[in-house]
Design a binder for these strands. Structure first.
Lengths: 144, 144
DNA sequence: CCATTTACTTCAGTGCCTTAAACAACCATG
DNA sequence: CATGGTTGTTTAAGGCACTGAAGTAAATGG
């Protein structure tokens, strides 16, 4: 058995991995661009995007962003300085600060969402059936 | 016509965009983790990965990484300090410095490639036919 | 030969991110 | 209650990624 330890992926899998890498790079850079159009960094855009769904305490934000809470402080600071986000006290626990998007923040989040060119444009070239099968495949990847 | 200016995507498209976002986030974080296992940052890993294909002048590296040349200087500095990359003079143009992966760098790049868990693991749950159709769909997205 | 352009670096400044340490508020126990 | 441990947030120090402006050296084109 020449396969050492870790099973080596076949050519097809490798190609798909390569393709995912390409698509990821492009989506990512498109996301950064879309954020930049609103003078936001990627991290700020992601945080604001989260808050556009529901207000969250700092701790939860850190969990969702997979980073340390001390990091969130700075990002929220900068968004708060631009009045896109505000910190609210939690009546149930005076230690926690709940970050919430302001009206302006919600508006920016909406525009951001709609400005995501890449994810949409290439999709336009796919038929509805193809989009459905893509959806199913992606779902299974996500849930794997 | 209620559609304002920019055409609003339908629900299916929106869902696929959402899914791509999820998959992108997961792939990205997996890539960072794989890099971290070799004590590399994401940027260092991407640069090293490029150099594992072929040596490139600093200027070209900046183009491929979509950043300013002055930024590449620092990343190559740090990789060179660890002897994963070296700067070579270009005999044809003495202004140019060609960055090239060392043997150790090539080895790390290989391990990095093989350590990419996420892109592979969820793929394992897909049949060969499904992987093929995923490949085709991704290709069309990339080339769109 | 000189002016311009090109390749790279250096420097200053910003943001993201981590760890360690501080602080306040919560909570359980004696 | 008091006390001591835990939890949520912030501050501070430091590293890396990144940009823009300025500097140096080498190429290039009148």
């Amino acid at each position: 058995m020449p396969t050492p330890h870790k099973t080596r992926p076949d050519a097809l899998t490798m190609e798909v991995v390569e393709l995912i890498g390409d698509v990821v790079a492009r989506f990512y850079s498109d996301y950064e661009d879309a954020a930049a159009e609103h003078a936001l960094t990627g991290a700020q855009a992601r945080l604001l995007s989260l808050l556009s769904l529901e207000p969250l305490p700092m701790r939860k934000l850190a969990q969702k962003l997979k980073c340390e809470p001390s990091n969130v402080t700075g990002i929220v600071d900068r968004l708060e300085a631009r009045a896109l986000v505000e910190r609210r006290p939690d009546p149930a626990d005076r230690r926690v600060k709940v970050a919430a998007a302001t009206e302006a923040g919600l508006q920016v989040a909406r525009e951001l969402r709609e400005g995501l060119r890449f994810a949409r444009e290439p999709l336009a070239g796919l038929s509805p059936q193809e989009r459905e099968s893509l959806r199913d495949l992606l779902r299974r990847m996500r849930d794997a």
